[in-house]
Write a protein that binds this DNA or RNA. Structure first.
Lengths: 192, 192
DNA sequence: TTGACAAACGGAGCACCGCTCCGAATATAA
DNA sequence: TTATATTCGGAGCGGTGCTCCGTTTGTCAA
């Protein structure tokens, strides 16, 4: 890559990280280019689609999550491992608001720049789920797609301002639906 | 209301119902006005905001849902009543894709045209939930807001094309998290 | 029937968006 | 230094939400 191109690429990524953090994944790309001191054409050349830009921004997060899954597979308690990973997966998408919708769309679109990342995300979750199922601590009528969908739903939920206060609690509610080994006579109100 | 105004209002609502059904709640309002053979200004006079238009479109659905809740309160089994209502609530938002996001936003925005409808929706769910909790068939660490949030999440999920095939199943998964009286040794795979 | 007037209409206009396209500028290698 | 491939940048196109106001029209009283 030519030196000036590399410089612009880096600059765009840095600025995009800032703008998307502040305004969400739907931020104006024109605005990103402007703030990066670069023409709109330059942005589109480096990142042909919005998904491509998002993928570049999330790259490291995806990798970290895959790495975390590898380590969690060694845990003694596959149920805790699964829930721990789920929590991190939801938190990750939480980094850039509005990112979950394109991710969901990407998993069914092989042409999307986010496709591979989302598939590997699902694969990581599937490994942890299957292990938990084999040990009898996760319900067996779910697969990786279901897990991915639940992560998406929880991520979306935590992205809606009015629902944010409930997000953590609902994570627990849904986790309890996935796990089978919990003592759950009646789930007394908070504090109990 | 003047006769011509009434005619335009009705026409707009009819066309909007068609367009929003086909293109979702984010449909172009310009397009609605054009197809209704009416100026853009006329549309905005009758429906000052997109939420106002959506509210008009959903009005009957909201009422039906409240009515259904009243009848379900008479059921012997409050658990079944709750789940039955939940299913209808999710299906309702399903009528117009993309409608759930503005509804969620509206519940925290008293100025929104959708606010009252969403509040009464939440109230209806709360009644059924409280009754189920009193009978010991629903977990007690949830309230109406949690229920509303779960409905929203399920509605959103069913609105994402790649997740549609899982939506029904995940409804069952989440329902099982809300109810406490289910036999749930391990949830064998489908068919079992 | 005919005015007068409030009410309703409708679209031009503004600022923004995503995205494409291509002449101008520039880094690089000969 | 020069030639060339690469990169740049923004004008331009068609779309959006929304406002504003000159024009038209329904209505009702005279």
């Amino acid at each position: 890559m030519r030196a000036d191109a590399q410089k612009n690429y880096d600059q765009l990524l840095a600025v995009a990280r800032h703008v998307v953090t502040e305004q969400g994944a739907d931020a104006s790309l024109r605005d990103v280019a402007r703030k990066a001191g670069v023409g709109l054409g330059t942005l589109y050349r480096h990142f042909p689609t919005r998904e491509a830009l998002l993928e570049a921004l999330l790259r490291t997060k995806f990798d970290e999550l895959a790495q975390t899954a590898n380590e969690l597979e060694k845990w003694d308690d596959p149920g805790s491992a699964l829930v721990t990973w789920l929590r991190e997966a939801v938190a990750m998408t939480h980094t850039y608001s509005g990112a979950i919708a394109p991710m969901v769309a990407a998993i069914a679109d092989e042409g999307s720049a986010l496709h591979a990342s989302c598939v590997s995300l699902r694969a990581a979750g599937t490994r942890l789920l299957v292990r938990a199922q084999a040990e009898g601590v996760a319900r067996r009528d779910m697969d990786g797609n279901d897990l991915f969908a639940l992560i998406s739903a929880l991520a979306w939920l935590a992205d809606q301002p009015p629902l944010v206060p409930r997000a953590d609690h609902l994570f627990d509610v849904i986790s309890s639906a996935i796990l089978t080994d919990q003592r759950r006579p009646d789930h007394k109100p908070a504090g109990a």
